[in-house]
Amino acid sequence: MSPDDFTASHWYAIGRFADFPEGLSRPLRLLSQDIVAVRQGKDVKVTRADGRPCMVQARYGHVWTTLMDKPRALYDMPEFLEEGRRLVTAGAIGVLCSGLRAVENFLDMAHFPFVHTGILGIEEHPEVEKYDVSMDAERDEIWATKCCFFQPMAAATATGGQITEYKYRVPHPYSTILYKTCPIREGAWDLIGLFIQPTEEDACIAHSFVLVFDESNSDTSLLHFQQNIFLQDRMILENQVPRKLPIDPRWEMPTRADASSIAYRRWLKANGVVWGTAKLAEAA
């Protein structure tokens, strides 16, 4: 199945610049199509199977490409221009599920006590308080704000757990960014983000990053933390049935804690997203 217009109209991250060694052609998949990427000097060139070139841009620590000749603009993340932040990229991790499932999981707080036990949540504090979800009509993106959750290891210096505040942003069907209150800089937010490269309707590659004010942890320890968390999620994502995202509300039953998931599924539906979603007829 070829991707719907909305899905096809975006830019997609395909790796970090360092992942493309000079002169080595790397065959890749994007939206069920074969593409080839190769580094030539300071550029990465991407071509389709028929040899036609794709547009390429380097942003947010990654190389992005698109299968469209006139794609939508890639969303802005002004935080990448702020002084003093550290960027750690966690590489590309394959996951056997629709990238839409991966984005939805990233927006979810209710799984913290069960999947990230002892790190992002504990079973004794599972409650998800009401939070706000809004559409930014101008930029056509979803924001979930005032998300508060009890975290046992909120900061390296914290002795007990505490309520941590988050914001979530979905500016792209396959990208999501978490803003977390920065423990060392008043009023600032640390960013953790996920750029999904959807390879097939039910398979994807997750590229992730952290962009933080942090003077105490090494890059490697931030990397290990990120990868540890993501691999805990991966076991869930590969065991959700079906692998594609059901967007019919009659199929999977949400509660108030799923407000951002509900908004995300509605937004996909309103934009005519079909590729990567499961039809109710497939439920059987």
Binding site: R16, T89, G91, S221
Partner: peptide, 10 residues
């Protein structure tokens, strides 16, 4: 001692 096995190939 954390080693950046992936993606850094340390």
């Amino acid at each position: 001692v954390g080693v950046d096995f992936y993606p850094g190939r340390e």
